[in-house]
């Protein structure tokens, strides 16, 4: 792509931190995070539980105000919810009284109170792209967990956001479904390039999917390492058996398990 000036930094975090408790004796949840995410880049965030990964995501989404530093998207400071952001949560959080198609269209109905034919066509196209067209009229509880999460991803893509924020989206799924849905996410991302921030507990998943992996420390969450994943794309099951894949996951694992040695 020939837009280097813009590409260099799409989402920029400069010294970003957040504390939930104003008491200075209690460490902040996250502190001093510097990160530049390029346009259409896939960045994964790994770290131990409670290291503030989700806090980071919420600050980028504009759901939470940073108590230190600045988040800018496309050069503009984030000061509230933005409509160019799609969020996928840990649980699919579909509305049980709407069928799959209406769930996908829900963000439009919720934000503007209505949607038109074009929106419906777009929802159908997205469902087809995710291999869900046969399930469009099903109710959420007729779908497996993996299928529900796919619907959650399609819903996040409906407003065609520039940024896709994913908060441990696959952690409730079984290992096999998880791997498959990861590859499906990559092919969706290849077809509809987005800037992705992907939070996960799984080191292997982070390396398998991302361009770069941000490794965070225990509370207070800081950046321990930012790793370039120089594995070729498209990533497949063969990627996992690549020696480089093992090296990269080992490097992250060292940070997590022996933070002082690394």
């Amino acid at each position: 792509m020939a837009e280097p000036a813009v590409n260099r930094s799409f989402v920029k975090l400069a010294g970003v931190g957040h504390r939930y408790d104003p008491n200075p004796a209690i460490p902040p949840a996250v502190t001093g995070i510097d990160l530049d995410i390029h346009r259409h880049e896939f960045v994964a965030v790994v770290g131990p539980s409670g290291c503030g990964k989700s806090t980071l995501l919420r600050m980028i989404a504009g759901l939470l105000k940073p108590s230190e530093g600045r988040v800018t998207v496309f050069g503009r400071a984030v000061d509230g919810p933005r409509d160019d952001v799609g969020i996928v949560f840990q649980k699919p959080t579909l509305l049980p009284w709407l069928n799959v198609r209406k769930n996908v269209l829900f963000p439009l109905r919720h934000k503007y109170g209505r949607y038109n034919r074009e929106d419906e066509a777009r929802a159908d196209a997205l469902l087809a792209m995710a291999g869900l067209e046969a399930f469009a009229r099903k109710m959420p509880d007729e779908l497996s967990g993996g299928m529900q999460q796919r619907v959650g991803i399609v819903r996040a893509l409906l407003l065609n956001p520039d940024i896709l924020l994913m908060d441990e989206p696959f952690s409730a799924l079984d290992a096999m479904t998880r791997e498959q849905i990861g590859f499906d996410l990559l092919s969706l991302w290849q077809e509809q390039p987005k800037t992705v921030l992907f939070i996960t507990h799984s080191i292997a998943e982070a390396v398998l999917l991302a361009d770069r992996v941000l490794v965070m420390s225990r509370r207070p969450g800081t950046v321990l390492d930012l790793i370039d994943v120089d594995l070729p794309r498209p990533r497949t099951t063969h990627t996992i058996s690549d020696a480089r894949f093992g090296e990269l996951t080992d490097r992250i694992r060292k940070h997590i398990y022996e933070p002082d040695a690394a």
Partner: peptide, 14 residues
Amino acid sequence: TPPELIELSRSLDA
């Protein structure tokens, strides 16, 4: 109501 749905609503600025 699941808190995620409230966040979804807030993220949409509804």
